[in-house]
């Protein structure tokens, strides 16, 4: 009897330590079992997993940026604008670098990534300055700058796609390392690890959570709020730029209106990942799980040709609301007990 109780109790404790995270894991597992029963052969193939892994990094990276901003109590609605802006500028660069034979010089791709990251960082710094120095509410500042970047994209391209640059770029990014792991996934994992490290192992991370909890208390504790905010939005800009560079490879072209649905989708992913829009709370593990859940659901659905793939958006919104309602009930009960404990 004792032996069976122990692991159960331990699991309960584990579950209670981060209910939100565990709920996401349970959902992913349930969905994977469901797919395994119904569409095993069509879903559980190496190719399928490779395709998923090459698709999600574009919005996955943008979500990581949104997450950072949300931890500070802000939001970044400009990620798609920044991504497209970067990818269009880099597409022009690639056009210029493409030689007569349709190839690229060896330095081209590193150069594109370096410059792309710089563009993203600059765009992010711009957002950060608007938020920190001019005190514009982040939702408005980034909405405006997102519109501005999209506008610049339109002005640069007149709304047309920039393509016809060397296919080498797309081929390289679409490559598989050791013919198994897609390059896009590698980029995403590297970025996710960097951010995980920043948030959980560095001073920057602690300060970020504190700033998100109370900007006033942060100021009175001697934190450099403005600089922290600018750094955060810069990181978000870099994430978005990397997302843009992956989009550039996945579509083999760049256009001002690629990925417009990603703006709200990123916010949705981040919130579902357990990040509190008020700030100060959220883990990268939750956001990564939420990205994986989204991709699994979407790809899984596509294995049922009789069901319109558009249902995915219904399920996605439904899952978000259900998770929030569940949080509401558990939090309300625990919060009540806590408050009374405090009174004692």
């Amino acid at each position: 009897m004792k032996n069976t109780m122990k692991p159960l109790a331990r699991f309960e404790k584990m579950y209670a330590s981060d209910r939100h995270l565990w709920r996401l894991i349970i959902m992913i597992i349930t969905w994977m079992i469901f797919i395994a029963i119904t569409r095993f052969s069509k879903f559980y193939t190496v190719l399928n997993f490779q395709t998923m892994a090459s698709q999600f990094p574009e919005f996955g990276l943008m979500s990581l940026g949104v997450m950072l901003c949300m931890i500070t109590g802000g939001i970044d609605l400009s990620v798609v604008g920044v991504a497209n802006f970067t990818s269009i500028l880099m597409a022009f660069l690639l056009l210029n670098l493409t030689n007569a034979a349709g190839g690229l010089p060896g330095y081209a791709i590193p150069l594109v990534f370096a410059l792309g990251i710089l563009v993203g960082a600059a765009a992010g710094i711009f957002n950060g300055i608007l938020v920190s120095k001019f005190h514009i509410p982040p939702i408005l500042a980034t909405m405006g700058s997102g519109e501005l970047f999209t506008g610049l994209c339109l002005a640069l391209t007149k709304g047309n796609a920039v393509s016809k640059f060397s296919r080498d770029y797309s081929h390289t990014i679409n490559n598989k390392i050791a013919s198994i792991v897609p390059v896009q996934l590698v980029i995403f994992v590297i970025m996710a690890l960097i951010i995980w490290f920043l948030l959980s192992r560095t001073v920057f991370g602690t300060k970020l959570y504190m700033l998100g909890t109370s900007a006033t208390a942060a100021k009175f504790s001697g934190l450099k709020n403005d600089r922290l905010l600018i750094k955060t939005y810069m990181m978000s800009g870099i994430c978005a730029a990397l997302g843009g560079l992956i989009m550039l490879a996945n579509y083999n072209s760049a256009r001002a209106d690629y990925g417009t649905v990603y703006t709200l989708q990123c916010v949705l992913i981040v919130v579902l990942g357990g990040v509190n829009p008020i700030g100060g709370k959220g883990k990268i593990s939750g956001v990564v799980l939420s990205i994986i859940l989204l991709r699994m659901l979407e790809t899984g659905f596509n294995r049922f040709p009789s069901i319109s793939s558009y249902y995915i958006s219904l399920i996605w919104g439904g899952v978000l609301i259900i998770v929030m309602v569940m949080n509401y009930f558990t939090e309300n009960s625990t919060r009540f007990v806590k408050r009374q404990m405090q009174k004692q």
Binding site: L268, G317, L320, M324
Partner: peptide, 8 residues
Amino acid sequence: LGSSSVFK
């Protein structure tokens, strides 16, 4: 955000 996704 959720409901807009549901409606769509």
